[in-house]
Amino acid sequence: MSTTRSGPLRALAALLLAALLALGVAACGSDDNKASAERADGSPDKITIAYQAIPNGDLVVKNQRWLEAAFPDTEIEWKLFDSGGSVNEAVVANSVDIGLAGSSPVARGLSTPIEYQVPWIHDVIGRAEALVVKDEIESIADLRGKKIATPLASTSHYSLLAALDEAGLSERDVEVIDAEPDDIYAAWSRGDIDGAYVWNPNLAKIVGDGGRVLVTSEELSSRGKTTYDLAVVTNDFAAEHPDAVTRWVAQQDRAVRLIRSDPGAAARAIAAELNIEPAEAAAQVRDLIFLDASEQVGAEYLGGGVARNLLATAEFNQRLGQIPEVQDEATYTDGVTTQFAEAAGK
């Protein structure tokens, strides 16, 4: 009997195996076709983006899910970071592809050097970052011996050092406390610090609580210490997926155009991301300067000015002992590209 039953069982097993193999071949064929399609249009399987709570076009893109629409077959992961220094660490750890960091952390990153490049300017920082202090402090000279908080290695830290330098003070003359923006506001609320160099929305909160603005990044910019919020993309990602970077830049350009053409709609999107009122978001947006793709590719910005700024920032940081060395000029020139903004602006 066992011999009589084994024939049908082997036949059934053979049929099942044939069916599974057929399914496997079909599935492999489907995956190969999908992979080819993704390679053809430059779309990676996943894009991981480091963003910050800064009232600029990046939050518009995130809120409106424009990247998800532009990359329908790609997983888009947004990771929130508190400062550009943390973004640099994430890039080194290979945990993000594209990120937002201020010009000072980018200058530090290129000086390391971190293998990334700047394809886009999120904003030129104006009044959106400032040195704000207790009301009884009337000048930068009065900061001697005071506790001033700022995120180390950020554009705010750079601007604080520049302001102190102008007044003939150094970092040793004040007690500089390293803290992230939300923690800075909490410390201010408790009365633990005398002031801070920080950006919106926490800057606006401190001013609303009675803080006195001593100097803004806009004022420092007029004296040669311009700061930016920059996009960075890893060299590997840019080389492997240039079309994807161009499409990412195109969505950022779209956000700048929305900020200009319909500031109310842009403010509502940003307010939703920052959990603030649209009117407050609109006021914070006005403290930044935005450039579209056609403006960014010019000699003043991605076409040369940003690279010169990053080199000068690195040299300033080295002079003050913030970084050990400055790379050759080509490192900063090669670290800024017009390629993607030119393509996106066509």
Rank of each mutant, 00 (worst) to 15 (best):
K79M: 11
A90V: 10
G85K: 04
N56F: 12
E68R: 01
A69M: 05
E136C: 00
P72W: 04
I137F: 04
N94V: 04
P55Q: 10
R108D: 04
E129A: 12
G99F: 09
A53F: 09
A128C: 09
I54L: 14
V87P: 01
K79N: 12
Y116S: 13
I121W: 05
I125A: 08
R108K: 13
D123H: 08
S111H: 07
H122R: 00
A93S: 13
L131C: 06
E68W: 02
S95T: 15
S86C: 03
Y116F: 15
Y116P: 00
G126Q: 11
A70D: 06
L59I: 02
P105G: 03
V132Q: 08
Q117H: 09
N56Y: 11
E68D: 04
K79V: 14
D97E: 11
T48I: 15
E129K: 10
P113K: 13
D82T: 12
K79P: 00
S86D: 14
S103W: 05
K134R: 15
V96L: 02
W120V: 05
V60Q: 08
G57W: 08
E89H: 09
N88Y: 01
W78V: 00
F81C: 02
D135I: 01
A93V: 06
V91Q: 03
S111V: 09
L80M: 13
V87N: 00
E129M: 12
D123K: 04
G84L: 06
R65F: 02
I125H: 00
I54T: 12
I137R: 03
D58K: 05
I137C: 04
I76F: 04
P55G: 07
V87M: 02
V133H: 03
Y116V: 09
S103K: 06
P113A: 13
I114R: 06
F81A: 03
W66A: 04
R108S: 05
S83T: 15
D97Q: 07
L67C: 05
G57Y: 09
A70S: 11
A50T: 10
A93M: 07
E136F: 08
D97R: 01
F81T: 01
V118Q: 03
V118L: 04
L110C: 04
D58S: 12
